[in-house]
Structure formats: structure tokens, C-alpha cells
């Protein structure tokens, strides 16, 4: 078993929380893991990505090779497309539909969504609204993870456990909002 996942977004959107949830669950299952992150300058509103690799055997490179990712999970639609060179020919792409507009030349959202329509194995979810319904717009990252969860070879219950572990310190309310968000994402794509 081996899952190579690219997580994408804009600095500050919470892709590292997605990485932490999958990472915790993977380690709990006794899997190997390597996960590279972007720190520093790009975190100031620039494009950020994380290479997340889980496997039942040793992992060599911290970076996923081009054409090697099984899955792209993105919390921003334009950012999802930026990493297509890394995606396998039969890989899946799961993205939030709400754009994060912090550049003057951000393209028309319809032209971005058109690109997703060209990709057969793509799923676009309205994560911001679903997160709002779950209790907090800030848990949109968990909605996207939930939507992508069936392409990750970790049982869904393990992901929920990892959410409890990760957000436990912040109180029961935050845990339940994030679990709800994760479940909402999961149920919309089964």
C-alpha cells in the first residue's frame, strides 16, 4: 500500500492540519510517513503545498516525483491545478470550489471550473458552505479531506480518531465541528 498525496492551498488556509490528521492516522496504523512542508516567505499569502507520502514499506524521497501523485487535495480551486504535473495519469483531484482572491489578476472562477470539467477524475465541493453548515467556515479543510477520504487507504474511523487527537486540546466544541465537517465531505462523495 502506498499513497502519494499533494496538499495544496494558500498560506494560512490550513493544509498543514490536513497533513497532521492523515499523518497521525497513518502513524497509528503503523505506516511509514514522509511529509514535506513549506515554511517561510510563501506562507505570507503565497501558494503553498505539502507532499504527503504514506506507505507500508520504507519511503525514500521526501518529494513526490512528477507524475507520481495518486491524489491532489486542495483547499483552493486554482491551486489544485498548479500541481497537475505531479498527478498520475489515473490520479484523483479533490478541491474546494471557493476561490481565495488575493492577487489582482485572479482568473474568472468559471474558467477554472471549466478545467475541472475536463478532468474526468475530479471532484469539486463547496467546502466553505458545507463547513459553515457544520458550524465553522474555518473547517473547510476538513470538508475537503472528507471528500477525498475514500481515495486514501486509511479507514475513515481512523481519520476521525486523528481529528479528535489533533483538536482535543482545543475543546469538545472544536472537535465536533471538525468531525461534522469531515463527515459532510465524506457523505457528499460516496
Amino acid at each position: 500500500m502506498k499513497n502519494d498525496i499533494i496538499l495544496a492551498g494558500v498560506g494560512g488556509q490550513g493544509i498543514l492540519s490536513i497533513a497532521a490528521v492523515v499523518g497521525l492516522a497513518a502513524v497509528d496504523k503503523g505506516l511509514y510517513l514522509k511529509q514535506s512542508e513549506v515554511h517561510g516567505m510563501s506562507q505570507r499569502g503565497g501558494d503553498v503545498q505539502s507532499h504527503l507520502r504514506i506507505s507500508d514499506s520504507q519511503i525514500s524521497s521526501d518529494l513526490i516525483p512528477y507524475g507520481g501523485a495518486d491524489l491532489i487535495i486542495s483547499v483552493e480551486p486554482m491551486e489544485a491545478l498548479r500541481y497537475l504535473p505531479w498527478l498520475k495519469k489515473d490520479g484523483w483531484i479533490v478541491s474546494n470550489s471557493t476561490p481565495f482572491v488575493n492577487i489582482p489578476d485572479y482568473p474568472d472562477i468559471n474558467s477554472i471550473l471549466d478545467e475541472f470539467r475536463k478532468i474526468e477524475k475530479s471532484i469539486v465541493v463547496d467546502a466553505d458552505n458545507m463547513a459553515k453548515e457544520a458550524g465553522s467556515v474555518r473547517s473547510g479543510n476538513m470538508v475537503v479531506l472528507g471528500a477525498a477520504s475514500k481515495y486514501i487507504d486509511i479507514p475513515f474511523d481512523s481519520l476521525c480518531d486523528a481529528v479528535r487527537k489533533l483538536f482535543g486540546r482545543k475543546g469538545e466544541e472544536i472537535v465536533s465541528v471538525n468531525i461534522k465537517a469531515l463527515e459532510a465531505g465524506r457523505s457528499c462523495c460516496l
Binding site: 498560506g11 510563501s42 505570507r44 499569502g45 503565497g46 512528477y66 486554482m78 498548479r82 492577487i103 478545467e115
Partner: peptide
């Protein structure tokens, strides 16, 4: 082998 190319609709997003 690279995956698909980045579509031209994708813009640069420098830090700000």
C-alpha cells in the same frame, strides 16, 4: 513522466 501541464488559467501567486 510528468503529469498534465499546468493550464494557462493558473496565475502566479507571490507572497504578499
Amino acid at each position: 513522466e510528468r503529469g498534465a501541464e499546468v493550464p494557462p488559467v493558473v496565475r502566479m501567486r507571490p507572497p504578499s
